[in-house]
Amino acid sequence: MARPKKLLDAATKNLTIEEKEAKLEEEKALYNYERINFKNYPTALLKQAKKEWDRIAKILGELPLSELDQQTLIRYCNYSYLYAQATADLTLEGSVIEGRANPLVNIMNSYSKELKAATSELGLTINSRLRITTPKSEAIDDDPFAKMFGDANA
C-alpha cells in the first residue's frame, strides 16, 4: 500500500528542483476546486449540528478543503453533535443500568470511530495536519541566549 502524499512544505525528503516544481504544480490543483460555502447549511446537516458547522468554519483557515469534502464535513458535524448528545445522556443515565453496561457506551464508541475517521480525512488532527503542512517556526527577534552564545541571527 502506498504512503499518503505530503504537501511540499511537509516533505522531509531532499527533492531536486524539477521534483519541487512538479510537486508545486500538483498542489496548485488542490486549490482549483470550489471552496466550501459555509454561509448556507447543507440539507444533510442535522439541525442541532449547525452550531458545530459554524464553529468549524471559523477555524478551518487555509486548509485546501473544497465542495468535494462537504460530505465528510457534514459527517463530522453530525457525529460531533450525536457524540455530545450521547455523552450527555450517558451522564444522566450512568454507565451501568440494571447491572449491565449502558448501550450508550457502545453508541459512543461507534460515534467516536466515525469522528476519528472524519477528523483525520479533513486534516483536523495534529498528525493529519502535519501531513498537509509543517508549522512555521517563529523567529525570536531579541533572544538574549542567542546573543550570549554569539548567534549571528540574533
Rank of each mutant, 00 (worst) to 15 (best):
Q71N: 15
T72F: 01
T72A: 05
L73S: 03
I74K: 00
I74E: 04
I74H: 02
R75K: 14
R75M: 12
Y76E: 12
Y76F: 15
Y79H: 14
S80W: 09
Y81K: 03
L82S: 02
L82Q: 08
Y83I: 10
Y83W: 12
Y83Q: 04
A84I: 03
A84E: 06
A84H: 07
A86E: 04
T87M: 06
T87F: 07
A88Q: 05
D89N: 10
D89C: 02
T91Q: 06
T91S: 05
T91V: 06
T91K: 06
L92Y: 07
L92G: 05
G94A: 01
S95V: 01
S95D: 05
V96K: 11
V96T: 13
I97D: 03
E98T: 02
E98C: 03
E98I: 00
G99W: 03
G99N: 13
R100C: 10
R100T: 14
A101F: 12
N102S: 13
L104E: 01
N106E: 08
N106I: 00
I107L: 14
I107A: 15
I107M: 07
S112E: 10
S112N: 14
S112C: 09
S112Q: 12
K113V: 03
K113C: 07
K113D: 02
K113G: 13
E114A: 11
E114S: 15
E114V: 11
E114L: 14
L115G: 10
L115P: 03
K116P: 08
A117P: 01
A118G: 09
A118S: 15
A118V: 11
A118C: 15
T119Y: 00
S120R: 04
L122G: 06
L122N: 07
L124R: 02
T125Y: 09
I126F: 04
N127P: 06
S128H: 08
S128C: 12
S128Y: 09
S128A: 15
L130Q: 10
L130T: 04
L130W: 00
L130K: 08
I132D: 11
I132P: 07
T133Y: 08
T134V: 13
T134S: 11
P135A: 09
K136S: 11
K136I: 15
K136C: 08
S137Q: 12
S137K: 12
E138F: 05
I140Q: 10
D141L: 05
D143W: 01
D143F: 00
D143H: 09
D143Q: 05
P144D: 11
P144F: 11
F145L: 12
A146W: 03
K147R: 14
K147P: 04
K147Q: 13
F149E: 13
G150P: 06
G150F: 00
D151I: 11
A152N: 11
N153A: 14
A154T: 00
A154G: 08
